[in-house]
Design a protein around this nucleic acid. Sequence first.
DNA 1: AAGATAAGGTGTAATTGTTACACTAAGTAA
DNA 2: TTACTTAGTGTAACAATTACACCTTATCTT
Lengths: 232, 232
Amino acid sequence: MEKLLQNFDSIFSIDCIIFGLNEGELKILLIERNEEPYKSWYALPGNIVKQNESIDHAAQRILYELTGLKGIYMEQFHTFGEVNRHPSGRVITVAYNAMIRLDGEKELKPITNYASKAFWMPVKDMPALAFDHTEIFNKGFDKIRSKISFEPIAFELLPEKFTLTQLQNLYEVILNKELDKRNFRKKMLSYDILKELDEKQEGVSYRAAKLYKFDRRKYAKFFQKELSFGKD
Amino acid sequence: MEKLLQNFDSIFSIDCIIFGLNEGELKILLIERNEEPYKSWYALPGNIVKQNESIDHAAQRILYELTGLKGIYMEQFHTFGEVNRHPSGRVITVAYNAMIRLDGEKELKPITNYASKAFWMPVKDMPALAFDHTEIFNKGFDKIRSKISFEPIAFELLPEKFTLTQLQNLYEVILNKELDKRNFRKKMLSYDILKELDEKQEGVSYRAAKLYKFDRRKYAKFFQKELSFGKD
DNA sequence: AAGATAAGGTGTAATTGTTACACTAAGTAA
DNA sequence: TTACTTAGTGTAACAATTACACCTTATCTT
């Protein structure tokens, strides 16, 4: 048995797609590689899973080591297992993604020297990436785009208090199309997952908008949406 | 580099959830294990990925070797990577699922002797399974259930020609709830993905129903459905 | 052949959700 | 005070969803 298993050993890695929103622009987290192969190329934060850690845990550790970001909840979305996706041998990778809030640009600082730096790249300017990371990114972005179409998950990207216009802009950026202001507000408010605050925007040179908070409890109801044929 | 990689080697496997419909009953394909650990337990068809094959290809090979079913298109749905999910060491597994048509009960015959038999098990009678396969099955079933709620994918399970009642029954079995006959038909026909045939059911001891075929070309339109806020 | 049985097949009205569309209100800046 | 910029709001037309019940057609039984 032991011998049989040895024959099939593979390398197993994690790659992370982390979305952030900065000044209305959607960005993802990249690193600059500091090792061969693809030395000095940009890549998704990713590395090899250890024997004694679950893949979910590995994802968190790896993201931390490469970017300094800690405790980010990520969700696995696809596993890439083509034979030649990595030039140094067989490497299968599980891709994770997450959306995070950038409170005043959290500092990014690689802990290991496997990456020479970590930085936010606007998704509209994505450069060529190492390995098959462009393909991984595209699949991850599609996933987010289709997920947001069914569930209002975009709040993770916004500051705790936000205006409806900011929320709408975010949807427009992710879905890459313009939305009708009145219809957007009507529908979003009808979900009853936003708490209207007694506060207004500050520091803007025009009429200040009301601020809202996301209501996580009420959101729970939402997690279900199905085709139906009557008789619920 | 070579040395670094070696330290992290893991075993990598595939497990398959194959749904079939037999006499109106939803079943999945299981094997009886013929090796330790869990010898003589029931399990999902699964085995180890080889170094020189993609995971999609491995899924097909493994399913064939354990059950004799060839060329089944499966879709990956989740990767399970808990540290202790396999008693003999670290094994990460990618789970795939598929729905197939049982034309007069295809013969099942394991090609390797890793399985002593392969058979169809009604999902409502699922026994305890080896390893964490019960968890994998539950997640796969959830996935199918939520997918069918957005896309009419269930045709894969039915014979080429089927009646609307058969289709409705299938939906009811998967979604585990009763649907309204008139609304179901109205909505299903409105998708315009069914071809009405000039034939009727045969061999039934009551009024025979019209037969329909699934129209794969028209189905393509369907693959998109999104939340929207006006201004398409 | 008459009647019983079993599933097939059909329509409508009420309700809800979606879409398209344009002006006034409020605050800031000059 | 005026100009500017974004906030904020309602309605009518249309489409989709829901709830709901009876007649039709074929087979089987006697």
